[in-house]
Each structure stands twice: as structure tokens, then as C-alpha cells.
Design a binder for these strands. Sequence first.
RNA 1: GUGGCUAUAGCUCAGUUGGUUAGAGCGCUUGAUUGUGGUUCAAGAGGUCGUCGGUUCGAACCCGAUUAGCCACCCCA
Length: 455
Amino acid sequence: MSKPSIPKGTRDFTPAIMARRQWIFSTLREAFEARGFVPIETPAMESLATLTGKYGEEGDQLIFKLLNNGDFLAKAQDDTLAARDSKSLAFQISKKALRYDLTVPFARFVTMHRNDLPMPFKRYQMQTVWRGDRPGRGRYQEFVQCDADIIGSTGILCELELVSLFDEALRALRVPGYRILVNDRRILAGIAASIGVGVDRLTDWTVAVDKHDKVGLDGVCEELERRGFDGGVQEGTRRLFGMTASGVAGMEALLHAFAHPQVEEGVASLKALWALATSEGIGEPELVFAPGLARGLNYYTGAIFEVQVVDAPVGSICGGGRYDDLTGIFGMPGVSGVGISFGADRIYDVLEHFDAFPPDLATDLDVLVLHMGEESLDAMLQAARLCRERGLRTEVYPDAAKLKKQFKYADDRQVPHVLVLGSDEVEAGTCTLRDMRSGEQVTEPLNQVMDRLGA
RNA sequence: GUGGCUAUAGCUCAGUUGGUUAGAGCGCUUGAUUGUGGUUCAAGAGGUCGUCGGUUCGAACCCGAUUAGCCACCCCA
């Protein structure tokens, strides 16, 4: 028998880890609900056709496809089988796939339920997604995304709301040194046009530009060279990254350096966002205008967001942006939306790295009632009931084991209080309360002990 | 998918040019203490040295293959 294992890129979560994960989820949920976002859920699996073609060619390869049930090979075409063409074959033997993100299923959801949803519609969704990536540090094949989207409005208040949400949630999560990077696809497109990048090469160019953080300016230029861009494009890209002014001043400078209507449009939009954010008390250093920020997903059309953490062991922990027509591909044109996504697993990794979790999350039990033998069982159970009535999480030890063992269990569980009701206490009408942190213990009538426990 | 590093007890790791019975710390079990955890002391359990094959009188150690993990390139939350 081989040792059991789990697929790479997946993880088990112990109770100690779950306490922290659930704290992250509940903190995010509170932040979402404080701004009126409502929850939805969608199935773990979608029709393969719903997902393909939405994430670019590479993205399609990373989608986990589910084999059809039954004798799926019987229906596959002979020539496809003979050619061993996995790509074509996949669509013949697979009709379902695991969701790759939450945005595309959301677009499908909106299209199907359009008549039942208030517009604008603000939803949040915290569910697992799967990607057939190579796992590595901070990268998993199964992870949870926490999305918030606003659709049916083009107002800049939507962008403001999401920037504010980032700020509130990350603050509540105690993420140290977070930076909300903002750019606008129109600015990128305008710059690209003004330095001679053809419209059809825009994605190519942004992919190279996006690597600036990793490979530096020279690396970006090499990448551009490799992708067949001429010296003019490289020179223009150098000018873009040579600009040092930050914030609104940086936007102004961009306006002069790269004259183009789309740049003007994007800058005007971001300046409006900056003015509103400033009055909300959000600004440097958390809010950063990042003209080089591109992001991979090609459905973004306006503002784009990314959250990075200074000195963090993982890449971005959040992302998002505005998309003008996501539901168009499902036959529902003209719905603009803007959304963001929190990477819960990466947030976990960052908090662990900085040891920033609240210290009291390990406590999941307030009182342990020891098992002192059958003769005092009634007293034990009654005491436990009284504790629970007062809102204390209370457990009765299930066996009359040695006290040493029961106390050790209390210690392992990090229970702050232990109640002892043995024959001595029952006879005297009292109860012994031990404070596990201080080691002090008192023996008093039960109602006095209850008052001492408070709550 | 390409290059480099690693794999020994539940965990973190030692292990001499290849030589008798493979060790330590932590954790675990039991006892010192039949009504008291976290400290201390004592004892104990736990390993076909990732897997398969080769070299050798003899392999945890050398060689080959394979699997899994870590780091870089690529991509992303």
C-alpha cells in the first residue's frame, strides 16, 4: 500500500488553519456587506463552452476539464483519436469543467437571471476556483477567490467604492504595507498608439510591459525585441518607465508626454477617482498610480487594479478592473461592470509571513467540564447547560479518564476555563473553577462560579 | 514545458573514504503524582534511509532510472 497523498497544488486544512481562514472570510464578508454587496454562489462546474475562450489561449489550457460520464471514447471521432490531438479531443470527450475564476461564471449568472436582478447589481462571491497551473510558492491549483463586482453602472463612484473596499478590507485584515495599484486600460492603449504599437499588437505590448516589476526596463525591451517591436516602441516604452512623478502629477506628465485622446480620457477618469479617494482619506502611500500596470486578462477596458504587499513572499494578493461588455459574449450586450478579487490564500500566506493574525484565533472553546465519574454526571451536564445558556462555548469531556489526561486535553485545546464537579463538590453544592492561564482555582457555589465566568 | 538543489522517526535535521545493532532535538505514550495541564525527572514506542534496478564481500552513502518536493525562467490570485 502506498502512502496516501493529495494532488499537488492542493492542501488539507487543520482546525488551527481553518480558524485563521474563517477569520479572513468573515472579515471580508463584513467588509462586503457593510457596503451593501449581496452574496451569490454558482456551481463548481460550468459547461466547458461557458469557460473556453475567455482567458486567452494559455488560460484555456489551464482549465480543468471533466471527462464525460459513460463510454465517452465511443463518441469521439476516429480521425481526432488517431491524430492524438488532445486539444480537439478535449471538446469531444468533455462537456464540463471546473470554474477558473468567479468573473466569467458571474457574467453567465447575470445573463441568465437578468430579469430578477436589481440594477445596478452588487454581488460578492467567495468560492473555490481551480487552475491547472504549475504549483509553487503562493500558487495553488485549488484556491479561494473572494470577488466583489458592481454591474449596470458606468459611474466613477463604482471605482471609488472598490478602492475604498480594498482599503477597508485590507486594513481590517491587518495586511501590512499593502499598495493599491491603479491604472487605466485607455491610458495604456493611448500610449501604445502614440508610440507606434498597432491596435492588433496592444495585448502583445502590454504583456511585455507587465513584466517590468520582474525583469526591469532592459528586460522589457528585450521582450519587446523578441516580440518584434521596433526601436521606436522600445524608446517610447523607456520614456514611460522613465517618468518619476507620482499620483496626479504623474498623470499630468503622462498627458504631455503621450498626447492621445485615449490617454486624455483615461487620465480624466483617474483624476476624478483620485479627487474622490482623497476626500475619503485614501492616498499615498497606499494608493498608487501605476502607468506600467497592465494585467493579463484581456476583458478589462477601463480602470485596472492590483494590490501588492511590500516585502511579501507572494505576488499580487488582489486584482480587478472595469469591463465594458463582459456579458456580451453571452448575448446580453451593453452591461458595464467593475469588479475586484481578493486572493484569500495569498492573504493567508502574507499574514502568516508577517505573523499578523490576531493572537486569540486559536481559542475555540471557552469552558471544559471534566468527567468526574457517573455519580456526578447530572451536575456536570447541568453546569455545561448553564454555561451554554450564557453564550459560552462549552464541552463535557466524554470519558472518566485520568484527570491528568483531561487537563492535558484542556491545555491542548487552549481552553481558558475548566470546571470540576466531582463527588466532593456535588456533596457540598459547589463547583471548582480553574483558570488555565494563571493556574488559580476556586471552589464556590455554582451560581457564583457562573457569575465569575461572566458573559 | 527547460536548467539547478533535495528526499533518513509524526516534525526539523545529523550520519566520518562504503564497514557490525542508523542517531539527536522537538512531539507522542507511560510513570514519578489513583482530584490537576503548561515546568522538571525517568522509562518506552516509533525508520524495508522516497521507489525500482545496478556496482560491491558489504550501500543511507557510489551509479542509473523513476516519483515527489524546493529554487530560477514562464504565467497568475
